[in-house]
Simulated assay, not measured.
Amino acid sequence: MLTRSDFERAFESSYGRQVGATLRTQYRMAPPIGELVSACFYPIPLAPGRGAPVAWFDQLPDPLRAVVTWIDTSEAGRESYDRPKNPGFDNAYEAREIIDLLRSICTSGNFIQELMQDSSEDEKPIGVICMYVEQKKLLQRLLSEQDWATGYRRLIKIDTVDSYQGKENRIIIVSTTRNNRLYDQGFLSSIERVNVAISRAMDRLFIIGAARMWRERNQEAPMGRVLAYIEQHRDGNAFAIVETSGITGGRS
């Protein structure tokens, strides 16, 4: 379970406050991702220490070309609700959309060839971060059943947010999982978890979830702030919001 890290406790100790220093330049994230993380989670803005992603990222399909894209599942209604498990939750609709998103990425002709050529043999350039272990299990099972994925599974890492601290991928897909009539956000109420999830992305960040959960309520929650920032700054190149039908054809 993700709680306060040893580093955080040391930094906030009396000795840490005397000798500690805040690093204000980040080198992992493309500028729009860094701006999003900085605005939502840091009182002092982070400066970008790197430039834009390489040009061949623009060879992704049109709906996926923005650096940060929220893919909204709200239109599916109850079909996109989460399901209680023991323990935790999963979300079958969201999982299927993520599998379709992975297929869109991995079958994007020139783009995937460039990505494979530019990645080392032991590197997994595509990461899927799940807020719940049951969603991770569901996604791993669904991916194992896909014929198209035979040549691409080595490129994809699927794991929980609590296992992702200190890691990074060129492309990150965040599975929010929670969507229900009570607007219960569960683990997504954790600033630390949401911060870790969206700050692992280097060149592209895709957030999959029902915007209604964060737009109608939970606006001040961590993921609510993320959605609000994307909505306020979307321009098609840096930030975008699309319906699931715009990516994969939808399942309404």
Rank of each mutant, 00 (worst) to 15 (best):
C106L: 10
Q117L: 14
Q185R: 08
F89A: 01
S144T: 03
I129H: 01
T177W: 00
D62A: 14
E168V: 00
E94R: 01
S120K: 14
D90Q: 08
R96A: 06
T177A: 01
N180S: 02
S104M: 11
L142W: 00
I126E: 08
D118I: 04
Q117A: 15
S144E: 15
S104W: 05
E145H: 10
V67I: 15
G109A: 15
R65S: 06
V133E: 13
L138P: 00
I171W: 13
E123H: 11
K124W: 02
V68P: 12
E79Y: 09
R193G: 06
D62I: 06
E123Y: 14
K124H: 13
Y93C: 08
S108H: 12
L139F: 09
S104V: 11
T73C: 06
W148C: 04
A66M: 06
D72F: 06
T160P: 02
I158R: 00
V174W: 01
F111N: 13
T69Y: 12
F89M: 03
T177Q: 00
S163L: 12
E75Q: 10
S119A: 15
D147T: 14
A66H: 07
D162R: 01
I156Y: 01
Q165T: 04
K124F: 02
N179L: 01
G88A: 03
L115P: 14
P63I: 14
I129L: 15
T107Y: 08
S163K: 10
N110D: 14
A149S: 13
V174I: 14
D162W: 00
V194R: 09
N179T: 05
E192S: 12
S175Y: 03
E168T: 06
V133W: 09
V161W: 09
D147I: 13
S119E: 13
E134T: 07
V68A: 06
N179P: 00
R193N: 12
I191P: 00
T107H: 10
I173M: 03
Y81S: 05
E121V: 12
T150G: 11
T107K: 13
K136C: 09
A66Y: 11
D147A: 13
S120M: 15
K167D: 13
I156H: 02
R96F: 04
D62W: 07
D82E: 02
D62F: 08
L188K: 05
I191C: 01
Y164R: 06
N86H: 05
P63V: 09
I71G: 01
D62P: 08
K136Q: 14
R141Q: 04
E114S: 15
C106V: 09
V67Q: 10
F89V: 07
I172M: 13
Y164L: 08
